[in-house]
Simulated scan of single mutants.
Amino acid sequence: MENISLSERHARGRLQDLARDSRTSLAELSRLIGRNAAYLQQYVRRGSPRHLDEPDLRKIAEFLGVKPRLIATRTFDDAPHNDTHTAPGEWVEVPRLPLDASAGPGAMGAEEISFDAFRFSRRWLREMGLEGADLSAIRVEGDSMDPLLRSGDEIFVDRNKRAGEGIHVVRIGDALHVKQVQASAPGRIALISANDGYAPIELGREEVEIIGRVVWKGGRV
């Protein structure tokens, strides 16, 4: 990093210190911004890239709870650029998590750090009955919920809605599944697939963690 200025070195050092203080690795922060695991390690130690892209910088700063200029390697305006005519606060971001909810054999859960987000107006969420929901977006993998949910669909999971029957994302051990949840015998629940080729699964309630109810889906036509 021979050509890197002292102020740039300090900014990189602050990023490394903040990551350590938050008990987050540089690899996890790299995945947060959709980069390969070594991206920020190279940025901090080798000075490559010379500067982080503004959207990446803002996302990292927001995650660490600091002003972007604190970790910026060049002059930076903390105020985000708003290129829409929608009033501030009228947009809601739904984080996309690097997890697959398996509609088939269980997908292993990963770190729940968002790598991207869907952006919706509050008006649309209100019209869809989703205002105030604790939403996360994850991808469906497998065919056990065909034709209702197809592999590759994105689903919104409301973590505020865990009780009752319906289509839920559930965790069994370390694996995530998306299934129709139904009450069974006392103390037990049944996990039902939409695809008739998959037999129902019956488990004790203590064996299943309900993550949240599926409230929206999107995918290719």
Rank of each mutant, 00 (worst) to 15 (best):
G106K: 06
F156L: 12
I4T: 15
E127H: 14
V214H: 00
Y43M: 10
M145N: 00
I211N: 00
V44I: 13
W91V: 09
L130Q: 02
I192F: 13
K179M: 05
R20D: 09
P68S: 11
L70F: 08
R220A: 10
N36L: 00
E2N: 14
L125S: 03
S151F: 08
W216A: 13
I113P: 01
S144H: 09
D116A: 13
A163E: 14
I167R: 09
G34K: 05
I189V: 13
L6P: 01
Q182P: 02
P68F: 09
L32R: 06
L64T: 12
F118W: 07
W91I: 11
P49A: 11
W124Y: 14
L18G: 08
D100K: 06
R58P: 02
E90L: 06
E93P: 04
A185K: 12
R12Y: 08
G173A: 13
T24P: 00
D134E: 13
F118K: 01
S144P: 06
K217V: 05
R9K: 13
T73I: 04
R139S: 10
L15S: 01
V170F: 02
G219D: 03
I211W: 02
R188P: 03
L191E: 01
E112F: 06
D153R: 01
E131D: 13
K161R: 14
S151D: 13
D53Y: 09
Q180G: 09
P147C: 03
I201E: 15
Q182Y: 10
L18N: 07
I201G: 03
Y39F: 13
R74E: 10
E62R: 09
R23M: 10
V44A: 05
G219S: 10
Q16R: 11
G89T: 10
I155G: 01
E206Y: 07
F118I: 05
R50D: 13
D21W: 05
D146W: 07
L52H: 00
A38R: 11
S30M: 04
P88H: 12
W91P: 01
M145H: 00
R171N: 09
F156D: 04
S184D: 11
R20A: 15
G173Q: 11
V214S: 00
S30Q: 05
T73L: 05
R14T: 11
A61Y: 02
P98C: 05
E141L: 08
A11E: 02
H177G: 00
G187P: 03
L57F: 02
G109E: 14
R119S: 15
F76E: 14
E62V: 02
I138Q: 08
A87G: 13
L130P: 01
R122C: 08
R58N: 09
D78Y: 06
R31L: 09
D78S: 07
G204P: 06
V170Q: 02
V178A: 08
S114P: 05
W124R: 14
N160I: 05
R171S: 08
V170H: 03
S102Y: 01
A38Y: 11
P105R: 12
G47T: 08
D143H: 10
G109D: 10
D143A: 12
E2C: 04
A190K: 10
D83F: 15
L148A: 08
T24L: 15
S22D: 08
A72I: 09
A11C: 09
S5R: 13
D53V: 06
G166K: 00
R46S: 12
R69G: 03
S184C: 05
S48Q: 10
G173S: 12
A101M: 06
R213T: 03
A79M: 11
I4R: 07
G152Y: 03
R159P: 02
A183W: 14
